[in-house]
Computed example of a mutant assay.
Amino acid sequence: MRRLDAGFGLTELMLALALGLLLVLGATQVFLSARQTYVAQSSAAVAQEDARFVLSKIAQEIRMIGMFGCIATDSIINVPSVFQTPISWQGAAGSRSWRFISADVGLPGAKPDWTVVSDCKRTAQVYAGQYLPLAPGETGFALRHIIYWFENGQLKVGPGKTVLLDNVAAFDMSFGMANSATGQSVQRYEDSPVSLANIRSVKIALTLQDPKARIKDQSYHLAVALRNRLE
């Protein structure tokens, strides 16, 4: 047999195998990198959606803090003592509770803790639970005592501590304060305000973590102005 008809030698075969292996490894690396990027983007999107849902819910409730009807609180009959502290932020880092009184935003199946019945002129009275029917000329303002808990890496809601969000690395809050009860603009932020009448806004910082460490901790911030004075 002539040498030109002998086919591939061992050297050529090994070189072809090495080149093929390099191509396979390259393609595998591209696939793994693309998959890692997809997983990271999906994890970030899930965290962002969770944060958006929770923060939008909280924002809606914050705007209605201190909404006790159409007559000043000191003119309402049978005002519960809890109305005197319509917002509080208690506890140590990693285990805190946030309590506030907010007008019911009409969540499905939710029942108010109190109803303020008023003629919006001279009289107003607080009743426990839901109050129906209303007399002609009366308006009912449904109120709820809302509690959020941050403990053991979870954000919980309600007296029963229903888990609202898992994998919470941090949940912090500060309050935008005016210089006086009649001031309009926020001059500073305080973690534990003494004068509730000076609160003009609430700032929340929420940090979520991926339990599988596929992405860095995701931080989200929300600042919401109060529609109602806490007086």
Rank of each mutant, 00 (worst) to 15 (best):
D74Q: 09
R96N: 14
Q84G: 13
A72D: 14
G94V: 14
W114S: 05
P108L: 00
V105C: 07
G109W: 05
S97G: 12
I101W: 05
I71D: 02
Q125H: 08
P86L: 10
W114A: 05
A72S: 13
W89D: 07
D119P: 13
P80G: 01
S118M: 09
I71K: 01
G69C: 03
S81H: 11
P86W: 07
A142W: 07
P136E: 11
E138M: 13
I101R: 00
G69L: 03
A142V: 01
L107P: 12
V117G: 05
G106N: 12
W89I: 00
I71V: 01
F100T: 10
D113Q: 05
G69A: 03
I147N: 07
K121D: 13
W98C: 06
G137H: 08
V105G: 10
T115F: 01
G69D: 04
V126S: 05
I77F: 07
A72H: 08
S102G: 15
I146G: 08
L132P: 08
H145M: 07
A93T: 12
R122P: 06
A142K: 13
L107A: 13
K121R: 13
R144T: 01
G106Q: 12
P80N: 04
S97Y: 09
A72Q: 13
G140C: 04
H145R: 09
Y131I: 06
Q84R: 12
D74E: 13
S81V: 10
D74Y: 05
K111D: 11
S81P: 10
P136V: 03
S97P: 09
N78F: 00
A135L: 14
P133W: 04
P80Y: 00
T115M: 04
V126P: 08
K111G: 14
I87F: 12
W98R: 06
S81N: 14
F100A: 08
G91S: 07
A72V: 04
A142G: 04
Y148K: 12
R96W: 11
R99Q: 10
F141K: 02
A110K: 12
D119V: 03
R96T: 14
I77H: 08
Q90H: 01
P86M: 07
T123K: 11
K111T: 11
S102Y: 08
A92W: 12
I87E: 15
A110G: 04
F141I: 04
S97M: 09
L134I: 11
A142N: 15
L134R: 09
A142L: 10
S75R: 14
R144M: 02
S97C: 03
Y148F: 15
E138R: 04
T123A: 10
T123C: 00
Y127S: 03
V105D: 15
Y148A: 08
T123W: 10
Y127M: 03
Y148W: 15
Q84M: 09
R99T: 09
S102W: 06
I101N: 09
V79L: 07
G69K: 00
Y131W: 10
S95C: 06
I87C: 14
A128S: 08
C70S: 01
Q130I: 03
G137T: 12
D74W: 06
I101H: 03
I101D: 11
A135H: 11
I76P: 07
I87G: 12
R99E: 11
E138V: 05
L143F: 01
A110V: 02
E138N: 11
I77T: 12
